[in-house]
């Protein structure tokens, strides 16, 4: 499967280079798709947790208890285990458990619950007086939830999602080991399995640069939207 003769030691740009680029593309695809799907579902779930909690806009003890339990059940499952648990669902949805797209299912599932807590935490920090002021204008709760809550917490939310980005990169590497592609698989197959640490280290550098870039963009965006 893997051409053994070629470039077993050191980083050969002509051989490893294109594979590295391809793996980076797969990682970005998995991470991006997870952030979009898990990010959106996590936002909805986080809004649900925040609005149904005691004193919330839609305070409802029963609904909150169910949502809270759901998050508490799924969030602590180690991702590696979750990958196995989710596999049958992935096969049902996509017909396969292999490849980057298949990994996105498990990653989005895990990200949803992580994101929901981050969203909840940042929304809780909104001054209740601001929400009261909106209610006093006659705004419906739906309008407040859809047009006010996210903008008011946007700066911290962006930082929260940046944090999630790093966690999802971590997940994608783990997913690589099981059945996926991406930088994790690249480092594993061409680096670790052949004891070629030049490949491992270059992968590490690429991931560090990726994370640094994401954090820099996150910091800048959040500063721009925060009017403090």
């Amino acid at each position: 499967m893997i051409p053994v003769a070629q470039a077993d030691q050191g980083f050969d740009w002509s051989f490893h280079g294109p594979k590295l680029v391809e793996s980076l593309g797969e990682t970005l695809y998995m991470v991006g798709a997870t952030l979009v799907i898990g990010g959106a579902l996590g936002l909805v779930l986080g809004l649900g947790l925040y609005t149904t909690r005691r004193g919330g806009l839609l305070a409802n003890r029963g609904v909150f208890a169910v949502l809270n339990l759901l998050v508490n059940v799924f969030r602590p499952i180690p991702f590696l285990i979750l990958l196995m648990v989710i596999a049958p669902l992935t096969v049902t949805l996509l017909g396969t458990r292999l490849g980057s797209t298949a990994m996105v299912v498990a990653m989005s599932f895990a990200a949803t619950f992580g994101v929901s807590r981050i969203v909840e935490q940042n929304l809780v920090a909104i001054d209740p007086g601001v929400i009261e002021a909106a209610r006093a204008t006659g705004a419906t709760r739906w309008r407040i939830i859809t047009t006010l809550l996210v903008p008011e917490a946007l700066g911290p939310l962006i930082l929260g999602y940046t944090f999630v980005f790093v966690a999802v990169v971590d997940m994608s590497a783990l997913a690589s080991i099981i059945d996926g592609g991406g930088l994790g698989a690249f480092a594993l197959d061409y680096g670790y399995k052949r004891w070629n640490f030049a490949v491992v280290w270059i992968t590490v550098v690429v991931i560090i640069l990726l994370v640094q870039a994401a954090q820099a963009i996150g910091n800048r965006l959040s500063r721009r939207v925060m009017h403090r």
């Binding site: 001054d127 007086g129 601001v130 009261e132 002021a133 909106a134 209610r135 006093a136 204008t137 006659g138 705004a139 006010l148 903008p151 008011e152 946007l154 939207v225 009017h227 403090r228």
Partner: peptide
């Protein structure tokens, strides 16, 4: 009913994410 009853607050409770004009436009 609340549209006919304005309210102001000790801590102002303005929407930090909106401009001055955006705050006034909200109601």
């Amino acid at each position: 009913k609340r549209r006919h009853i304005g309210m102001i607050f000790q801590q102002f409770n303005l929407f930090a994410s909106r401009t001055v004009a955006g705050n006034v436009a909200f109601p």
